[in-house]
Amino acid sequence: MHAVRKSWLGIVAIIISIFVFLVPFSFIILTAMKGKNEAGFLSFSWPTEFHLWDNIVEVIQTRNFMLVTALINSTVLTVASVAIMVLLAAMVAFVLQRRASKWNGLINFLVLSGLIIPPAVVPTIWVLQGLGLFKTLGGLILVEAAFGLSFCILLFRAFISTIPREVDEAAIIDGAGSIRLFFQVVFPLLRSVIITVIVVQSVAVFNDFTNPLYFLPGDENATVQLTLFNFQSQFDTSWNLLFTNILLITIPPLVMFIFFNRQIVAGMSSGAVKG
């Protein structure tokens, strides 16, 4: 009786999930496979002719291979900013968790502020301009790293608190200084949380639209999220190309999801238990 009701509930859930979640994704794929005219009907239908490959080629070539440039930009941006975040956040979290000092209250406050406070846009541009970093990829990398630090510090700190202090003490007795203690002893132990941080933040930076929009304007600097506006125009939107583009830029997060599902979920839901 109970089991029957459970499977009944499951079937209903599956049917609803198909309509709510699978149909929109199939719509993206179907439209990406259509020709221009057919895609213009915006209908949820099987393509009469398949143009997926032509569409991919055309999307890639559009505006002088802008998508390729954007993909390179986004990759550099993601790799560099996440690398900076991981290294700096792990160092901060390590000292913050291990060493009691009168500064800890202030540092914790700043970390939480970084999570809550919306960044001030134009003043950030003003600062970047003063440093000569406005409209440069380097500037955006630093901005993304600065904005992402807080979240990473919280994840690292929670994990470091589970590493016994005896590990540190053993290393210190063996004569390790602060650099060796951190880089050779503690950092390797952080492997699992580092993977979590890398995956979660890579997806976040790769998908980020707002910061590139403000801090890295200009076509030659476009990141992948901004390429989506290539095919939208008031008069003549090429829906097939637009959705091909959406499909292409969804692949990296999809790959991440397939391989790192568990770490992503763990990273994003951490804090729920402790509150």
Partner: peptide, 17 residues
């Protein structure tokens, strides 16, 4: 260990704020 992240955070987040 705090130095570099503090500079980054201060320059690009605290100062603009």
């Amino acid at each position: 260990f705090y130095l570099v992240p503090a500079i980054l955070y201060a320059v690009l987040f605290l100062v603009p704020t």
